[in-house]
Amino acid sequence: MTIYDYSVRDAQGNDVPLKNYEGKVLLIVNTATKCGFTLHYKELEQMYEKYHAQGLEIIDVPCNQFGEQAPGTNEQISEFCTLNYNTKFPQMKKSDVNGTNELPLYAYLKSQKQFEGFGEGKTAQMLDDFIKKINPDYKNTSDIKWNFTKFVVARDGTVAARFEPPAPMSDVEACVAKLI
């Protein structure tokens, strides 16, 4: 199986085969509209505008599994993103990224790039402390830990990198730019 064997549903419920994005650099991210990391939408949109013409596609997968921070319907989430961040990249149907009902795409992504920690800094330590209270063994699974985990996929379909929410967006952009 490759990434191009998977599909997701867009916000209207239409099937979107990832084969449609073959040859592009993909940035796949689970998002939430009521999270401390929601400001990442601004930088994601800036990256999209900067690199889209060169082959970047962002696949936004709203997810309500982390603190129920993606409330509302698909339409309400889309409206929020458009009004507040003027997002133009594709937004998919709100979906699970962990557990029994997780998108098969996310099972694949997690099998390709394991969790390697939150990194350094105050935000990373705060997230580590918080997640430990929910699941003391969280470091030993490849599960998505929180909103705005990002996977970067190279033009050949290989999963090149996984960035946890506290990772600087400049690091994400550097990875994307290298692959463009």
Results as ranks from 00 to 15, higher is better:
Pro62Trp: 06
Phe163Cys: 07
Ile77Cys: 08
Val16Lys: 01
Glu79Ser: 13
Gly23Lys: 02
Ile3Gly: 06
Asp171Val: 07
Ser7Met: 04
Ala32Thr: 05
Lys132Arg: 11
Glu22Phe: 12
Val16Ser: 00
Pro17Gly: 04
Lys110Trp: 02
Ile28Ser: 01
Asp171Trp: 13
Ala167Tyr: 05
Val159Arg: 07
Asn74Met: 02
Lys24Gly: 03
Asn135His: 01
Ala174His: 10
Gln54Val: 00
Tyr48Gly: 06
Ala11Pro: 12
Cys63His: 10
Tyr6Pro: 05
Ile144Arg: 00
Pro166His: 06
Cys35Ala: 14
Asp10Glu: 13
Lys178Ile: 06
Phe89Asn: 08
Gly119Lys: 11
Val172Thr: 13
Tyr138Asp: 04
Lys93His: 12
Val172Tyr: 04
Tyr106Thr: 04
Ala124Cys: 05
Val153Pro: 01
Gln54Tyr: 00
Ile180Trp: 01
Trp146Pro: 05
Lys19Phe: 06
Asn135Glu: 08
Lys94Asn: 08
Asp129Tyr: 03
Asn101Lys: 14
Ile131Pro: 05
Leu18Pro: 03
Gly55His: 08
Lys34Gln: 11
Val176Arg: 00
Leu109Lys: 09
Asn14Glu: 12
Leu105Pro: 12
Phe66Tyr: 07
Ile144Ser: 00
Val16Glu: 00
Ala167Val: 09
Glu22Arg: 12
Lys178Tyr: 11
Pro165Val: 04
Ile180Lys: 04
Asn74Tyr: 02
Ala177Cys: 01
Gln65Ile: 01
Lys34Asn: 06
Gly72Glu: 12
Ala70Gly: 03
Val61Ile: 06
Gln112Trp: 09
Glu102Arg: 14
Phe66Asp: 02
Thr31Leu: 12
Phe37Ser: 05
Val97Met: 09
Ser7Leu: 06
Ile59Val: 10
Cys35Leu: 12
